[in-house]
Simulated assay, not measured.
Amino acid sequence: MGERKATVAAEVGLHARPAATFVQTAMKAPMDISVAKVTGGQRVNGKSILQIMALDVRQGETIVITAEGEGAEEVLDQLASIASTP
C-alpha cells in the first residue's frame, strides 16, 4: 500500500476549490484512495467531496493519503502536490 503525507498549504485548507481539484484527480484513478488527518486519524474516501470536506483539514495540517494498486505511486504524488499547493 502506497502512502504520502502532505501539509495542506491552501489558505482555505482542503475545502472548496482545493477539495474539488483533489477529488477530481482521485476519481480518475482506478483504485480506492483514502485520506486521514495525521492527528485524529479517521480515514475517509478520497473520491468523496463530502467526506473530504467533513475532515475539516485546515491550512498547516498534515494529511495521509493512501492508495494501493497499479499506478498508485503516480496518483499519490499528484494528490500530495494538490494538497500542498497554496
Rank of each mutant, 00 (worst) to 15 (best):
V44T: 02
G2Q: 12
E73M: 01
V23E: 08
R17D: 07
I49K: 10
A9M: 08
T7R: 14
A80V: 10
R4W: 00
R58I: 01
V44F: 05
K47P: 10
L76C: 02
E11W: 08
Q51L: 13
H15K: 09
G40D: 11
M53K: 03
T85M: 12
I82A: 11
H15D: 11
V57Y: 04
S34F: 01
Q59W: 01
A16N: 05
A29W: 04
A72I: 01
V12H: 01
L55W: 10
G41F: 01
S84I: 03
E3T: 13
D56T: 07
L76A: 02
I52Y: 10
E11N: 12
E68R: 06
A10G: 07
V38E: 13
I49E: 11
P18E: 14
D56P: 00
I52T: 05
A20E: 15
I65A: 05
A20N: 14
R58Y: 03
E70Y: 02
T39G: 13
I33V: 14
A67W: 02
Q42I: 08
A10V: 02
I33L: 05
A80N: 09
V23S: 06
I65K: 05
E3L: 11
E11V: 11
F22R: 10
V8E: 07
I33F: 05
T85N: 14
R58S: 12
V8I: 12
I33G: 01
A16Y: 07
A26T: 10
T25S: 15
V12R: 14
L50P: 05
M27P: 00
L79F: 04
A6V: 09
E61I: 03
R4H: 06
Q42G: 04
E61K: 03
G13D: 08
T21E: 15
E61P: 05
Q51V: 00
G13F: 06
I65M: 04
T39V: 14
A54G: 15
A29R: 00
T39H: 05
I82M: 12
A54Y: 03
E74P: 00
M53A: 08
R43E: 15
I33H: 06
D56Y: 03
N45E: 08
H15C: 08
I65R: 06
G13Q: 06
L50I: 15
A83E: 12
E73T: 08
L76V: 01
Q42A: 14
A54H: 08
I63Y: 03
S81N: 15
M31V: 13
E68C: 01
L50V: 14
G46I: 05
A67P: 01
L14W: 03
E61Y: 02
P30V: 02
A16P: 05
V44A: 04
D77Y: 01
T25A: 15
A72Q: 04
K37P: 04
F22M: 09
A6C: 08
T7H: 03
Q78L: 14
I33T: 04
D77H: 11
D77Q: 13
M1V: 14
V23D: 10
I52G: 06
K37A: 06
M53E: 06
S48Y: 04
L50S: 10
G41W: 02
S84D: 10
E70I: 13
V44C: 04
A72D: 07
G2S: 07
K5P: 00
S81K: 15
A26S: 12
S34E: 14
